[in-house]
Design a protein around this nucleic acid. Structure first.
Length: 567
DNA sequence: GCCGTTTTCGGCCCGACTGTTTTCAGTCG
């Protein structure tokens, strides 16, 4: 029984308890236990006393032990006996919670999506007390798309929408300040919806402007302070919260979450005899304090500004001393992975170089694809030499900056490398990566990676797993082994900052940092505007608690070159 | 169900919106 299964079982139990109308705190306790396990980076075999973990007590520990020893949970089995298995999925229907579903089951015998649909069609649902015609209609409508709608959306899709919405909000005169909030602001890989906080002294006008400018399928809620719509794009939900200027900082904090982070903050407030809400901090005498910024809000409790990316609800409060050292965008001195028109990029060498200078970087590496990747117009050794001349020319014209000559070289399906040692030794920086034969068995994939890692000329492995968030898992390498090899041979592993990838993922980045393997955060830009991915990349790295010292492209050119030579 | 050294009982974050209600329950984040 692995950890994932245990977490899933605890969450299943919570769902069933919800349908039983159990005490909400008891339900939350099972979810909290599941989350506590998830946050703990150890594997089950490394944990000797589970009750020592905060949030796991006698009851939940018994379930876990049962699972570990017997491979099943008596508690869950009993619940499943008692409650039809068609009911828990109904909790996913918007507007239906445990109590309503329990009532449908007890009074109408509803035990599945199908029987719920029949009950609605016969008008029985509307007749129940506490239900009505509107509720029945809404359920029927939701049932039509039940099981088809994506529950979460990948960050790269939401990023496009947020960019568009930012433009739209900029145009509304009555808005004084706004920001995206929610899990997107925390740089979660996938989110359910998008949240925006808007400061305005004229909410009526803003609401009107919003509803006239947005292209939505449906308005879900439209109150004085909250407007919620389903966008045309993929039916993605966006919530807008309208607050006064004074309330903006606390509202932004509140709606950025996470939920558990807020719970911790409120506990702290309580210890001070205060009460936090989205509108400010209420004092014992009823006065409400507001703040100019989130920084000021945190400072009220003698806390440093906790970046949204690490507001997970636990760990961050134990690691406050590490916050100043967390990697941030301004630490970045270079981008080590980008493409030009020589292969499949959209801009010339000198244009990418100039864009890096505009970013304020000290150096950068041009790393076009190698000859194997024909679809991307990969470079032969001859073309590489020609490209180097262009790079040298650029450096002569820009003495304050250094453009290095590199490659993103393919690791071929048979495990050989696309360039021989002589070609590689001519280059300043050699990236090796896999772009083909993803479905090989793990053993073969690892053989290919090993071949690259042990070659003295290879400096870095790019997007080490090949995943695309929400779309494909990649080629499934044994990452702990990969990290061990990177350590052994002194290689860099990449955090590819393209929001499609974010590869390595958080957990693996933490693992790599613990092992002392250096990380490079690179945009893999194929066009100038993609250099902006460095921002999401550094934020994502914060989630793995990476520090400046872990990241090679925060180093000066001199330190970087020294590292490459002696590694 | 979990937690706690002023606690082993009594809390557990707080508020908006909707749809059902004549004052509030359920859901949601």
């Amino acid at each position: 029984m692995n950890k994932k299964n245990i977490i899933h079982t605890l969450e299943q139990i919570a769902l069933y308890l919800e349908l039983k109308g159990e005490n909400p705190f008891k339900i939350a306790a099972f979810r909290k236990a599941a989350q506590a396990l998830e946050t703990d980076t150890r594997s089950m075999s490394e944990i000797d006393d589970i009750t020592a973990i905060k949030g796991i007590g006698k009851g939940t520990a018994a379930v876990i032990t049962d699972l570990l020893e017997n491979g099943r949970s008596e508690v869950l089995l009993e619940l499943q006996n008692e409650i039809p298995k068609g009911l828990p999925p109904l909790l996913k229907l918007p507007g239906l919670g445990g109590k309503k579903i329990a009532k449908l089951y007890k009074e109408l015998g509803v035990d599945s999506a199908e029987s719920l649909r029949v009950a609605c069609e016969e008008g029985k649902v509307a007749a129940l007390s506490g239900f009505g015609k509107k509720t029945q209609d809404k359920i029927m409508k939701e049932l039509e798309s039940f099981g088809e709608k994506a529950e979460t959306h990948p960050i790269w899709l939401l990023d496009e929408l947020v960019t568009q919405l930012n433009v739209l909000l900029e145009e509304i005169q009555e808005i004084d300040e706004f920001s995206v909030a929610g899990s997107f602001r925390r740089v979660k890989e996938q989110s359910k919806d998008i949240d925006f906080i808007i400061a305005t002294e004229n909410p009526v006008a803003v609401k009107e402007a919003l509803l006239s400018k947005l292209s939505y399928q449906e308005i879900i809620a439209s109150g004085d302070t909250k407007i919620s719509v389903e966008l045309q794009t993929e039916g993605i939900q966006v919530d807008f919260r309208l607050v006064s200027n004074e309330e903006y900082a606390t509202a932004l904090h509140h709606f950025t979450g996470s939920k558990d982070h807020n719970v911790r903050m409120r506990q702290i407030a309580k210890e001070h005899g205060e009460k936090i809400s989205e509108y400010g901090i209420e004092q014992q005498d009823g006065r409400v304090l507001t703040f100019d910024s989130e920084t000021a809000f945190f400072a009220h409790y003698n806390l440093p500004f906790i970046p949204p990316t690490v507001r997970m609800g636990g760990k961050e409060f134990d690691r406050l001393d590490q916050i100043p050292d967390l990697i941030k965008l301004s630490d970045i001195q270079a981008d080590l992975h980008m493409h030009t028109t020589w292969s499949d990029g959209a801009y010339a060498v000198h244009e990418m170089g100039q864009a890096l200078i505009d970013k304020g970087y000290q150096y950068g590496v041009i790393t076009d694809h190698s000859q194997y990747l024909k679809v991307a117009n990969g470079l032969t050794p001859e073309r590489l030499k020609l490209q180097r001349k262009e790079i040298q020319q650029f450096n002569r014209e820009h003495p304050e900056f250094t453009l290095l000559a590199g490659t993103e070289m393919d690791i071929l399906p048979d495990g050989s490398l696309d360039f021989d040692d002589e070609v590689m030794s001519d280059l300043d920086f050699v990236i090796a990566s896999i772009h083909s034969s993803f479905s090989q068995p793990q053993e073969k994939i690892m053989e290919r990676l090993h071949e690259a890692l042990k070659n003295p000329h290879v400096d870095m492995i790019a997007h080490p797993t090949g995943r695309i968030i929400g779309k494909r898992d990649g080629y499934n390498p044994d990452v702990p082994q990969l990290i061990a090899w990177a350590k052994e041979y002194g290689k860099i592993l990449e955090l590819n900052a393209n929001p499609y990838r974010l590869d390595l993922c958080m957990e693996h980045l933490e693992m790599a940092a613990r092992a002392g393997v250096p990380i490079a955060i690179n945009t893999d830009a194929h066009a100038i505007d993609q250099l902006r991915f460095m921002e999401v990349g550094t934020k994502y790295a914060q989630k793995a608690w990476l520090k400046k010292e872990n990241i090679v492209n925060t180093w000066s050119l001199k330190d970087f070159m020294t590292y490459l030579q002696k590694k």
